[in-house]
Design a protein around this nucleic acid. Structure first.
Lengths: 246, 246
DNA sequence: CGCCGCTGATACAAACCGATACAAAAAGCC
DNA sequence: GGCTTTTTGTATCGGTTTGTATCAGCGGCG
């Protein structure tokens, strides 16, 4: 196993870029840099990275916007570490809601940045491989269904297509990313729509209900999506990947 | 959602323990304290916590050792926040490498500690909840029943499904996590609902009763759940795991 | 035997969730 | 742009789950 973690540093400040890059390299990592969002996506397209360090304060699309864009695209599983200019709690919390994995407050010590980079990567590695696989597979099977994640619709055993609306698809994908876990309505709302619940918000209930009818999940027992009263919902059906033996 | 976060403060210094505990409580959290590692593990076993505040400088096993021990055991997903004595970068970085989620440097302002506690909990909630909670096995057998912990229902010998309500399932899982041990009503309430008992709270009695009827545990003789007068209940039936010889 | 604290059972009320209906918003389509 | 169609959110009703109140039964103890 000779994998060396590869870090992409995104910052408009040249000094920080090169400084961080050099420090990481001196400590046995590989590192590249990008000056803005476009540059970042270009590099992500041509190389494989293990983590992105993203400055929040940047001209053009700032780090928060980029973080969200990353999370909604094909790099959903890529760990992100934010650099926040000042110790502004709002920034940090918004960042974490955008799906960042950690943050470091500027000015930071290089050693701490390195430690946090390693901690995030370690945490990510500890995750069951489910997430990392669902990110990259096109077809996920569960029960009598297959979900085509590029066409964004369901297929039954005979290959009949069952269309899904955008919200239904996002919800189902969130469930498949986190099977066998109770997800609260807050989490589901956050992960599917990126917004917070209002008081008495029941839109998730409705969405679950609609997804259930799509899946013909009317059985009281042995259902795909189970309700956990006062907590949320669980996707409680094993997922088989294309390669698996039946 | 009426869950109140529960914090465990581990410190050998009595002033810090009680001071922090009181401050957290004044700010709407629940808090308990432990004086050392043994005390900490004892409490983790009987109550459900959302985060541990761990002092590094302690006689006996210090915080770093305890942090590592936590990370290798069944509490590996429990968020840990370290208290480091001085602004010693080495300690902090070793802490992060041991798997701590954040640290606060002594002397600290209570407000900062609270803010960081909330930030860490928030972050953990945002993470794919894959790592959280005890997830050892999917199926636990006892007596003539099997509990499917992902589908959250019971199966009898013939594979007939007996549904469980959310509270019933949680209670049964707590019993199966601590078999052959008397659990007080307080503990059961804490472990199943994460709340503390009111005066004359008898909801656990009722829940046990409901679970017993599900298990058809009306037998006076060999029952699954035994009541221990004025103490609590015991799950008194051997549990076999899937791999075990029948 | 009779008191007293503890537990089990039943009844009832409140909170929570599923389903339906309908309104608002967004996306296609001339 | 206007119109239709689809998608998404709000309101409401009824069923289920869960907690509180109440009473009866049981065991210990004098």
């Amino acid at each position: 196993m000779d994998h060396v973690d590869n870090i992409l540093v995104v910052d408009d400040d040249r000094e920080i870029r090169t400084g961080v890059m050099e420090y990481l390299r001196k400590n046995g990592l590989r590192a590249s840099a990008a000056v803005d969002g476009r540059d970042m996506f270009a590099q992500l397209d041509t190389s494989a990275f293990d983590l992105v360090v993203l400055d929040i304060m940047m001209p053009g699309d700032d780090g928060l916007v980029l973080c969200r864009t990353l999370r909604s695209g094909k790099h959903r599983a890529l760990p992100v570490l934010l650099l926040t200019a000042r110790d502004d709690e709002t920034d940090r919390i918004i960042g974490l809601e955008m799906g960042a994995d950690d943050y470091v407050v500027k000015p930071f010590s290089p050693r701490e940045l390195l430690a946090r980079i390693k901690a995030v990567i370690r945490r990510t590695r500890m995750l069951p491989p489910n997430l990392r696989i669902t990110e990259t597979t096109d077809v996920l099977s569960f029960g009598r269904w297959r979900l085509d994640t590029t066409a964004r619709h369901l297929l039954d055993e005979e290959g009949t297509i069952v269309p899904l609306s955008g919200a239904e698809f996002r919800l189902l994908r969130v469930f498949l990313d986190h099977p066998q876990r109770v997800l609260s309505r807050d989490q589901l709302l956050n992960l599917t729509q990126g917004r917070d619940a209002e008081l008495f918000d029941r839109s998730i209930d409705l969405l679950v209900s609609r997804l259930r009818t799509r899946l013909e999940d009317n059985a009281k027992e042995q259902s795909y999506i189970k309700t956990v009263r006062s907590e949320g919902y669980v996707f409680s059906m094993p997922i088989t990947l294309p390669g698996d033996g039946a």
